[in-house]
């Protein structure tokens, strides 16, 4: 197997993001960051493919320097190399220039058989990058995969469809997006973590390294813009508490269910 490239994103934990309804701004300062869970699943799949078929697992991510340590975390999970795609001009990107930057980096790494990513990020939950990356690289895509087997220059993937699944086969190289929870991602190895932090040299590529003009990346290269944010106001509910011990509560609950069944 040639290179196995995993695209990952670092995301804030959404519980910790505060929306100010007056300024209509998001305060992310209290949010803790983490590798997007589905992307971790993709790293695990990559490592398992490597165990059987060989190859090198290379992580890439587009983001600010604070992503560095998360890429190192991925190296401590067992990845062979990691590249951060970081540039001021990359800021404010929607998925189009993001896919452009990632696919340009993948092409630059070259010699790849498999590109993996999580099915979607937990913060934006768009799930459209993998298809865009596949298009820019002109390779086939299989999205929402729950298992990936590579053999004899072919890929056999089980993917989620409405009401069930399909097993599909495709040629290599291919882009696969991985369903969160498809496999349990391993924990970073303690020794590898120490090495990742002290000895591993993370590569950083800027727009110049990728040969991308400023106007095709980041905010300038984007097609969609957020015009406004609004709070989704909760629906007013009665919020009547049913009191009593377990027997009383369950009697009333059974009554409610039965009554509403008739109406």
């Amino acid at each position: 197997m040639r290179n196995i490239i995993v695209c990952l994103k670092v995301v804030p934990k959404s519980e910790n993001i505060i929306f100010d309804p007056v300024t209509k701004r998001l305060d992310r300062s209290k949010a803790e960051n983490q590798i997007n869970e589905a992307d971790k699943t993709a790293i695990e799949i990559a490592l398992r493919v490597r165990e059987k078929q060989g190859g090198r697992v290379i992580l890439i991510s587009m983001g600010p320097p604070l992503f560095e340590n998360f890429l190192k975390l991925g190296v401590a999970m067992g990845a062979d190399d990691a590249i951060l795609l970081s540039d001021r001009n990359f800021g404010g990107a929607d998925t189009y220039p993001t896919a452009l930057v990632l696919s340009t980096a993948i092409a630059q790494i070259g010699d790849y058989d498999l590109v993996l990513a999580g099915e979607e990020s937990s913060d934006a939950a768009l799930g459209q990058l993998p298809g865009q990356i596949a298009e820019f690289l002109d390779i086939p895509q299989v999205l929402f995969a729950s298992s990936v087997e590579a053999d004899a220059g072919k890929l056999r993937v089980r993917r989620r469809i409405r009401g069930g699944h399909e097993v599909v086969e495709t040629s290599l190289p291919a882009m696969v997006s991985v369903e969160m929870g498809a496999v349990q991602p391993r924990f970073p190895d303690f020794k590898k973590m120490k090495r990742a932090l002290s000895q591993f040299h993370l590569t950083v590529w800027s727009s110049r390294d990728l040969g991308l003009r400023e106007e095709v990346t980041g905010n300038k290269g984007s097609f969609t813009f957020v015009r406004g944010l609004s709070e989704i106001t909760p629906i007013r509910r009665k919020k009547v508490f049913i009191e009593g011990d377990v027997a009383e509560k369950s009697t009333q609950l059974a009554e409610l269910l039965r009554e509403r069944q008739r109406s």
């Binding site: 929607d94 998925t95 189009y96 896919a99 934006a124 939950a125 768009l126 799930g127 459209q128 990058l129 993998p130 298809g131 865009q132 596949a134 298009e135 820019f136 895509q141 999205l143 929402f144 993917r159 989620r160 469809i161 409405r162 984007s222 097609f223 969609t224």
Partner: peptide, 23 residues
């Protein structure tokens, strides 16, 4: 935004060089 719909949308938008909003 079904499985097939989401599978299609990313590639089609990229090929059309246009913006794509999700869900």
């Amino acid at each position: 935004a079904t499985y097939y719909g989401r599978d299609l949308a990313g590639r089609l938008a990229a090929r059309l060089r246009t913006g794509l909003t999700a869900n």
